[in-house]
């Protein structure tokens, strides 16, 4: 089966000459459909950089990144935007919902970008809110939702476009322990029921415990790659 994500000898350097730092050093990783993978490692190990690259938000200094079989280096800016919109869902550490839109509208926004007709958008929004357990809270703006609720809206937004993969950078870092676990359970459930692919970067032991595969990064290199 073709992997959803494949990095081949990817390097990403920041700075030049003496100040040059290798955030990623010849990283080759394959993520299959339906995986629930955690990228772990200490701060500065290159977790976020790896997620940036596999999310098409950044380009590697060398090596190749394939998203659903497509080399992102061959895409123009607009093609990459379209690709992210249709194939990748993002969950951010700080939720990053649009503050002036309600929960429903935040979820609807990405489908608007996809050109989904209004009636289907509204139907899908209701479906997503039910999935993440936020029925009845759709008309609230982010400021009137708790951190856990906002992150659940972010999960719903990431899933609304029906992406091939969801990338989450420390999704529970701003949540208390119980809320974080509850959110993880929702994502795990979505992974199992809908076979949605999740890749996390995390420090949290609870995420590591729930992940089926752990990719250990240290100093920009893959130290270990374990499947449970």
């Amino acid at each position: 089966m073709e992997p959803v994500i494949e990095t081949r000898n990817v390097c990403r350097y920041f700075g030049e000459d003496e100040t040059r730092v290798a955030a990623l050093d010849h990283v080759s990783v394959q993520i299959e459909r339906g995986e629930f993978t955690a990228v772990i490692g200490p701060s500065g190990s290159g977790k976020t950089t790896l997620l940036h690259l596999i999310g098409g938000l950044d380009n590697p200094s060398s090596g190749e990144v394939f998203l659903s079989g497509t080399n992102i280096a061959e895409m123009s800016g607009t093609e990459l935007s379209d690709f992210r919109r249709d194939h990748i869902g993002f969950i951010f550490q700080a939720y990053n919902l649009i503050p002036v839109l309600s929960a429903e509208e935040n979820i609807e926004y990405i489908m608007l970008l996809q050109g989904v007709p209004a009636n289907k958008r509204h139907e899908r929004v209701r479906e997503m809110l039910n999935l993440v357990g936020l029925e009845g809270l759709g008309d609230r703006r982010p400021a009137h939702l708790s951190g856990g609720q906002q992150q659940r809206v972010a999960v719903a937004r990431a899933m609304a476009s029906n992406p091939d993969i969801i990338l989450a950078d420390e999704p529970t870092a701003n949540l208390d322990s119980a809320t974080g676990v509850a959110l993880l359970d929702i994502m795990r459930q979505l992974n199992e029921e809908l076979e949605m692919t999740f890749v996390f970067s995390t420090h949290a032991q609870k995420i590591m415990d729930r992940a089926r595969r752990l990719v250990y990064l240290e100093d920009g290199k893959v130290e270990r790659d374990e499947s449970k």
């Binding site: 999310g55 938000l57 800016g77 607009t78 935007s81 379209d82 992210r84 919109r85 249709d86 869902g89 993002f90 951010f92 990053n96 649009i98 926004y109 990405i110 970008l113 996809q114 937004r157 476009s161």
Partner: peptide, 16 residues
């Protein structure tokens, strides 16, 4: 600026 970064990340085109 952060929000525009998010908007672009989730697929808003430069034209959008």
């Amino acid at each position: 600026i952060y929000e525009f970064g998010v908007a672009k990340a989730i697929g808003t085109t430069p034209r959008g």
